[in-house]
């Protein structure tokens, strides 16, 4: 049973030609074949404030798209919406659509379990489950009903290598995952989401707790991973954003201010607010 690669929903009712009705003035890129289209997305939490305001955003395949901006801008909210993890939060209002491969993942008919297998996420704090390293990695497979040991072993090796931590842990797979260092744990978390062979990987400040060396390792593996995956990253600093971004979106107070090619936004931003932030004048 290869549940995690099958389609979320049978047909594809998606208008790929979906045209933004109110394109942000600064929005430059119109992608021809995006992986994800966020269309007029607005989200409010139970405290009443609108955390995302009418976001339009197209996210390309095989690239790192960076969402950055000052705290409370709604980056995490957008990220969690893409795999419906925000269902767990007390969200009171969701408007708009998020299309993934032409399927509106916000529709109630969607199989969220399959969606989450297709869209992996890594959080700011490395959260390893209180299990062994191996059990952490195969956890998602077990949930999906995959019991085949050889498939497990292959998946573990492949994803640990992809997360650049294979060499460090290959001899201690049956030790508790908490015995690893924070940086190692975070790469275990990355590997754990790769085991399910997702198509999209969401990373929410994945290196915020890590030392520069571990950070470098994670960034390096992201560069390799983007060959095969769609990567959406919330960086923990503007510097990191500038280092890894193929595309970058600047969020401020729930609004998407500017979205363009990474090189441009950090060298020659169009919006003055982006410029202020990039040059460290606020936030």
């Amino acid at each position: 049973m290869n549940a995690f690669n099958s389609d979320l929903n049978e047909p594809s009712p998606v208008p790929m030609e979906v045209k933004p009705r109110a394109l942000n003035a600064s929005m430059e890129i119109v992608l021809t074949d995006p992986k994800i289209i966020v269309e007029h997305l607005s989200i409010s939490y139970s405290d009443g404030t609108e955390s995302l305001k009418d976001i339009y955003l197209a996210i390309p395949k095989n690239a790192i798209t960076v969402l950055f901006g000052p705290a409370g801008g709604g980056k995490s909210t957008l990220l969690r919406t893409i795999n419906r993890l925000n269902d767990l939060a007390d969200v009171v209002k969701v408007q708009g659509h998020v299309w993934l491969d032409g399927v509106d993942i916000l529709s109630p008919e969607i199989d969220v379990i399959k969606l989450r297998r297709k869209v992996g996420i890594v959080f700011a704090r490395p959260v390893v489950l209180p299990l062994t390293i191996r059990q952490n990695l195969t956890y998602g497979l077990e949930l999906a009903g995959q019991k085949d040991r050889t498939i497990h072993a292959d998946a573990v090796e492949r994803s640990l290598k992809a997360a650049a931590i294979w060499d460090e842990v290959k001899d201690r797979l049956d030790e508790p995952a908490v015995s690893l260092s924070g940086g190692q744990q975070q790469r275990i978390c990355l590997a754990r989401s790769l085991v399910l062979e997702p198509e999209v990987i969401l990373l929410d400040e994945p290196t915020s707790g890590l030392d520069p060396i571990s950070t470098g390792k994670v960034e390096a593996s992201l560069q390799t991973l983007k060959e095969n995956y769609t990567i959406v990253l919330v960086p923990h600093s503007v510097q990191q954003a500038a280092r890894v971004a193929d595309y970058a979106a600047f969020f401020l107070g729930g609004e998407l201010i500017e979205y363009t090619i990474g090189k441009q936004i950090f060298t020659n931003p169009l919006d003055s607010r982006t410029e202020d932030y990039v040059e460290g004048r606020f936030g």
Partner: peptide, 16 residues
């Protein structure tokens, strides 16, 4: 709670 969030994010149902 983080354990729950991680498990759900890996495609777990609530009961799993």
């Amino acid at each position: 709670n983080s354990f729950r969030v991680v498990s759900i994010s890996l495609g777990g149902t609530r009961w799993q």
